[in-house]
């Protein structure tokens, strides 16, 4: 493809390995190309981007151990298919944060939009505020790869729909006293993974596929690890968060729809 896109101006190099870019007026294609080229530059370990305004796909196809700090509001699909980098968003994020993400970390110091962590397979996402609809939808896991989504506030409908693996945690810190979480249909079609919820949720808000229980075994330890990291990132007191009870949601069945279908051949009927 064209090599005509100029490299964005590198504003400053405040410390070893740190560079700053101004994204004002830049297309996502231009910005992302520049990020990729900087990330492969020897010695660059952190890139700060100012005036981010709606640029999509930041972090996509950015491989390796690089830290990206975004000031402003990144656009949709932040970190889509991402593999490795750590992204901090000092602002709100839009839809599709960590879409089909493979590894790495995304930290949002604000709210995130719909389908956060959709189909995420590995890595971690921390959102200080709330997330939109269908977040944690179809999260999955494979072997050692277990994705983690921690949301400080609440989520909208269909949180954890079709969830097939990984851990999603709602902390409910944005809810007033006695206020219920916003989401309905939580865990609809869930057939893997786990959801931990702190704060009030009525059984009518849950999908038919989920089983409610108290955290058991090493659940609390894993929640404490996640909450510890969350609290450190956003300046909360982890102990205070852990003081309240958590609810665990897990799938009733690894095969929620099996009995709705029949193979059709005569021999698979129970004869006799």
């Amino acid at each position: 493809m064209s090599a005509q896109v100029e490299v964005l101006e590198v504003l400053a190099a405040p410390g070893a390995g740190c560079v700053t870019l101004d994204a004002r007026g830049r297309s996502y294609r231009e910005l992302n190309r520049t990020l990729r080229s900087l990330a492969t530059r020897r010695g660059v370990s952190r890139i700060s981007v100012t005036n981010v305004l709606g640029q999509r796909y930041i972090g996509t196809n950015l491989r390796g151990e690089i830290e990206v700090r975004l000031y402003g509001t990144p656009g949709n699909d932040l970190g889509a298919f991402m593999d490795g980098p750590v992204i901090y968003v000092y602002g709100n994020a839009q839809d599709g944060v960590g879409n089909t993400m493979n590894s790495g970390k995304i930290v949002v110091y604000g709210n995130a939009g719909d389908i956060a962590a959709m189909s995420m397979r590995g890595g971690k996402i921390f959102v200080k505020g709330n997330v939109g609809s269908r977040s944690a939808i179809h999260m999955k896991e494979c072997g050692e790869k277990k994705p983690l989504l921690v949301v400080g506030g609440t989520a909208h409908d269909f949180f954890g729909e079709y969830m097939a693996g990984g851990t999603a945690i709602l902390l409910g810190l944005s809810l007033g006293p006695g206020e219920y979480h916003k989401a309905n249909f939580i865990g609809t079609g869930m057939h893997g993974g786990e959801i931990f919820i702190r704060g009030r949720v009525d059984p009518s808000q849950l999908g038919a596929a989920v089983k409610i229980s108290e955290p058991a075994g090493d659940d609390m330890r894993r929640i404490a690890d996640a909450v510890g990291e969350f609290a450190e990132l956003f300046g909360y007191d982890a102990g205070e968060i852990m003081h309240e009870e958590f609810l665990k949601l897990s799938p009733k069945s690894l095969r929620p729809f099996a009995e709705l279908y029949h193979a059709g051949s005569r021999d698979s009927l129970q004869l006799g």
Binding site: D77, I115, L254
Partner: peptide, 16 residues
């Protein structure tokens, strides 16, 4: 890239 023995569900729409 899913756990063994679970249904591999492909939702009807792509949710994005």
């Amino acid at each position: 890239m899913i756990p063994e023995g679970t249904d591999a569900l492909s939702p009807a729409p792509q949710h994005d």
